[in-house]
Design a protein around this nucleic acid. Structure first.
Lengths: 253, 253
DNA sequence: TCAAAAGTGTTGGGATTACACCCATGA
DNA sequence: TCATGGGTGTAATCCCAACACTTTTGA
């Protein structure tokens, strides 16, 4: 929570630089050791968790704002981002509002306003991300999707909606490029799918379907080191992958 | 186009009542005599066409604002609305901006601002709609989807995106409830699908698939009057229809 | 009685599912 | 040598597309 002085400075800066009433919240999905992760922030001096979010500069495209916000939190440029919903319940930022309303008059108080928030989900390569807290946060960290605490504001709803959307998208286009490291094995990719869909899939049928997309390059070298038979390594064929994304949108009729 | 005096009054009223920087634009789809229609507006004193749109009251939920805007244009309450995208290119309202920027200083001039617009598409029963122009418009009318003129601002993009989204949605859930009259025949419903998808479908397979959803009630009475064999009338079974919508979202895995 | 619209049935093929079997590896 | 993870193959099934045939109706 901000002190009055901090709130005043923050508000003045925000009013100067950002569009009022509009925010962006991001659900950043990562994948590590067979577990789906989401990036969340813990606030300073509060037992309060949030999704990473921010505001939009006055003449900045939405997508660019989302990228900028994420760059600050993850160190990553050029992230796969998908806008999925606008959340605009007039009561959605009530908690913030209550927390700060008595500190400053509304005209000067950035958080005394209603905010619509544009939800983006991001798919990122876990191993490349270096979670970084922002000025309001104490920590920024990867949280197992199974262990997400109650989030403040409507962020639990935003997360749920993001996950639903991701599942839907997964069912009509190959996702994975942005979540997997350069090289990966089919069982690893399968784990990703199983995690997103929350469902067991058949090993052999999964391989057939995936390879059927024709978007993978098989490496000669198998993954070494592990116990048991060494699985083959694959990477995405970016050319064909992009084509498949477009193809996927055509739908089933 | 507004006069300076009108602009001043409009701006004052808007600043008083609406959230700045945010608008809503609606793509209203109707279906009549086998042709897909979209509701568009023609401006007073300009050869300029727009999608119906408006602004959001300061404490109004987004959905309610969209409904209110549409009620003013169509006379319909309780419309099927689907939020599908936010358009936020900083240059998107440049035309408006250029048109009005010299009339009033920016601080008082509603249209001197950047607007993000939330796109909704609506599916409505053509026969129940009574197109009504608003204060800025000369006419509001149903336009064949094949004959839409160039729209101002980014409204052509918004329309295209709405149509793409509608097609996508059609491929994984049964749409039609909101576009068809209470009673309709399978060939009529097929026309709707063919129009949306811009593709011929097989009569027999279409019936099988549709009836397979189990969301229709067959009427005993066939449609009379037409030449040739009288087709059966169907209506949607609202209970099962809603269940099918939820089911549809589960996707194909 | 015939053309056109509509209802119903059949069939073949492609995709998806549910399996079984084999191979490699470390404990 | 055996449990486990991983690669590959196959039969059964289901779904869907492409068909043909029949019925009804007004002209």
């Amino acid at each position: 929570m901000l002190t009055k002085k901090e709130l005043k400075a923050y508000s003045a800066d925000a009013r100067e630089n950002y569009l009022p009433h509009i925010s962006i919240d991001c659900v950043v999905f990562g994948f590590h050791e067979g577990v789906m992760k989401v990036l969340i922030l813990k606030m300073k001096d509060e037992a309060a968790w949030y999704l990473p979010g921010g505001f939009m500069r006055k003449t900045e495209p939405i997508e660019m704002a989302a990228n900028r916000i994420l760059k600050e939190r993850t160190g990553l440029d050029d992230i796969f981002l998908q806008q999925f919903h606008v959340f605009g319940d007039p009561e959605r930022s009530k908690e913030h509002f209550e927390m700060y309303k008595d500190m400053l008059p509304a005209a000067q108080n950035w958080f005394a306003n209603r905010f619509l928030t544009i939800g983006y989900y991001a798919l990122v390569d876990f191993s490349h991300v270096n979670p970084t807290p922002d000025e309001l946060s104490e920590t920024c960290f990867w949280c197992d999707i199974e262990e997400i605490p109650d989030l403040k504001l409507d962020h639990s709803l935003i997360l749920k909606t993001a996950l639903d959307t991701l599942r839907l998208h997964l069912s009509y286009q190959p996702i994975g490029y942005n979540l997997m490291p350069k090289q990966f094995t089919m069982p690893e990719l399968q784990k990703l799918y199983e995690t997103i869909l929350d469902k067991k899939l058949d090993r052999r049928n999964f391989q057939r379907r995936m390879l059927g997309f024709g978007i993978f390059n098989k490496s000669d070298e198998p993954r070494k080191g592990g116990a048991h038979k060494a699985p083959f390594l694959y990477s995405f064929d970016t050319e064909n992958y992009k084509a498949a994304l477009i193809e996927g949108f055509k739908g089933g009729w």
